[in-house]
């Protein structure tokens, strides 16, 4: 493997994996802390019809209409879930399951109906993720990293991922204290006048944005893995809010990098012609991380700590 191959094939995919998994890991902590993990499952499926509609309306595989369509679909899904919960008096899990599967089925049908499947959006990329297709063929060497024209030809998924990651990280930093309160004491948060429902909505939209940005890279179901697994693993190991949120992001990013490396480049570097779907390996590692954290928690002979969460 040459340096040029690395630049052209592996670097963009590696960056995409790190950005997607880091962003999902960052937001996942809030889902796990709020006992709302299934929302990640729901939103990562429910954005599909929005994405397809974004394609169909603009006829282009551009990032922004896709993102907006996905956010609209996510919003609709959240509203639909609460409506179904109220009217059909279902517990939240069942209501979530009823809504997101319907949305996903609608998305699959729209895909057929609009012809988006054959032309624009590969079904495999929804189901499996296509990290391997994130390539930077314009790279001529390490000098290209400083060359604006070559940089402009970086895959567009990377730009979308980077933009979404930056915005979401900024929002989390901005809403650090309110989100903390929302996770641990929503009633108190509401009592001191925080717009709790607005915050919840913002959180849902942030998850949806992360889901749709990561969608193409790791696929819809592996978005769930990256939302929940790093956060749950960290949840088993710490009681600190800061460690939880930042640790989730770091573990997500690390799993993304490690998973991508294990899926192909690393075996190839040792002369093994062995390649797996990178998103699959990353998700598997996510499950292993939770299992490892579980073991670690059981092995750790520590005095029982008071379950007080400090910022």
């Amino acid at each position: 493997m040459t340096a040029l191959d690395f630049l052209r094939l592996d670097l963009p995919a590696l960056l995409a994996a790190i950005l997607a998994c880091g962003t999902c890991g960052l937001l996942g902590s809030f889902l796990v802390l709020r006992r709302d993990s299934l929302l990640g499952d729901a939103l990562s499926h429910a954005v599909l019809p929005g994405i397809i509609a974004g394609f169909a309306l603009t006829g282009a595989r551009a990032g922004l209409p896709m993102l907006l369509g996905a956010l609209a679909a996510a919003l609709l899904a959240v509203v639909a879930i609460s409506l179904v919960r109220r009217v059909a008096r279902l517990e939240s899990g069942a209501a979530t399951g009823a809504v997101f599967t319907s949305f996903f089925a609608l998305g699959l049908m729209l895909m057929e109906a609009t012809g988006a499947r054959s032309v624009d959006l590969d079904l495999d990329c929804v189901l499996f993720g296509q990290l391997e297709s994130v390539v930077w063929l314009e790279a001529q060497g390490f000098g290209s990293l400083l060359d604006p024209t070559a940089l402009a030809a970086l895959p567009r998924q990377l730009f979308l991922l980077a933009a979404v990651a930056t915005v979401l990280a900024g929002l989390v930093a901005l809403l650090w204290r309110p989100l903390h309160l929302l996770c641990f004491d929503p009633d108190y948060a509401a009592a001191i006048g925080l717009p709790a429902r607005g915050l919840e909505l913002a959180l849902n939209l942030m998850v949806a944005a992360a889901a749709v940005a990561a969608f193409e890279a790791v696929g819809s179901i592996l978005v769930v893995a990256m939302l929940v697994c790093p956060a749950a693993a960290i949840r088993l190991l710490t009681d600190s809010y800061r460690a939880q949120v930042l640790g989730g992001a770091a573990l997500g990013a690390a799993l993304g990098a490690l998973g991508y490396a294990l899926a192909g480049p690393l075996p190839a570097a040792f002369g093994q012609a062995f390649s797996l779907n990178a998103a699959g390996v990353i998700g598997t590692l996510g499950g292993l991380a939770v299992a490892g954290a579980m073991l670690l928690r059981q092995l750790r002979i520590a005095p029982p700590k008071p379950a007080v969460i400090s910022g």
């Binding site: 006992r35 993990s37 893995a225 929940v228 797996l276 699959g280």
Partner: peptide
């Protein structure tokens, strides 16, 4: 352990098992 709620456990299992399946399939 009580530390991970059922919803999180379901999400973890379905996504990581599925991921393993995807890797094996590839």
């Amino acid at each position: 352990g009580g530390r991970i709620r059922e919803d999180a456990a379901i999400a973890i299992v379905l996504s990581s098992f599925y991921a393993l399946g995807v890797a094996l399939l590839s």
